[in-house]
Design a protein around this nucleic acid. Structure first.
Length: 180
DNA sequence: TACTGGATTCACT
DNA sequence: GTGAATCCAGTAA
């Protein structure tokens, strides 16, 4: 079994973490992919971290957390926050599907392996990622669900709209990768 | 409150 | 190569 990447991996400077993320394996409850393209964002004008707003605050406050944002009215983009001391996040731009492929195909509605996760919006759809996963943390089991009186929040910061139960994990590149 | 534009994708030409 | 789809966050007023 490949070695688990510790949370502290993400505590280092964004520009150091980003290249090391290439080749690592993202596992969201058995749906797995090898990261093949990332984009690092710090405090430059092109980054949400350029201004501190309610949305971007997670980039300032955390590392090893999930930051998802909605774009172009249709797509989500998956980021992981980085750098214990500064603002930073890394956008996952593309992954190579390794397991849970049938689940990905069903979610994406296409069969072609090459088109499943070859873009930020595509991989979010394939992994079933949306805004609900904001502020969730790598390694922690996340349980999100409906309550009798409406939405149940697992944290004061997360508004939950559907049943979810998952865990974000990263593994060191290992070949061959065998999922559970 | 209203407006603007966006870390994208895909169909169509 | 081009343009449409689509809606939220941020900003200006």
């Amino acid at each position: 079994m490949p070695r688990l990447v510790p949370l502290r991996f993400f505590s280092h400077p964004t520009l150091e973490v980003a290249p090391q993320l290439i080749g690592k394996i993202l596992d969201v409850d058995g749906v797995c992919g090898r990261i093949v393209e990332v984009e690092a964002y710090t405090d430059d004008p092109a980054s949400h971290g350029y201004r501190r707003t309610e949305r971007s605050e997670i980039m300032f406050e955390t590392y090893g957390h999930v930051y998802v944002y909605f774009i172009y009215g249709m797509y989500y983009c998956l980021n992981f926050t980085t750098d214990r001391d500064n603002v930073g996040a890394i956008l996952i731009r593309a992954v190579e599907p390794l397991s849970g492929i049938e689940v990905m195909r069903k979610r994406r509605g296409i069969h072609d392996l090459r088109k499943l996760c070859s873009g930020p919006g595509k991989l979010c759809e394939a992994f079933g990622i949306d805004l609900d996963f904001n502020w969730t943390k790598i390694g922690e089991r996340v349980k999100l669900y409906h309550g009798k009186s409406g939405l149940v929040r697992t944290s004061p910061r997360i508004g939950i709209s559907k049943a979810t139960d998952l865990q974000w994990r990263f593994f060191e590149a290992g070949s061959p990768f065998v999922s559970r």
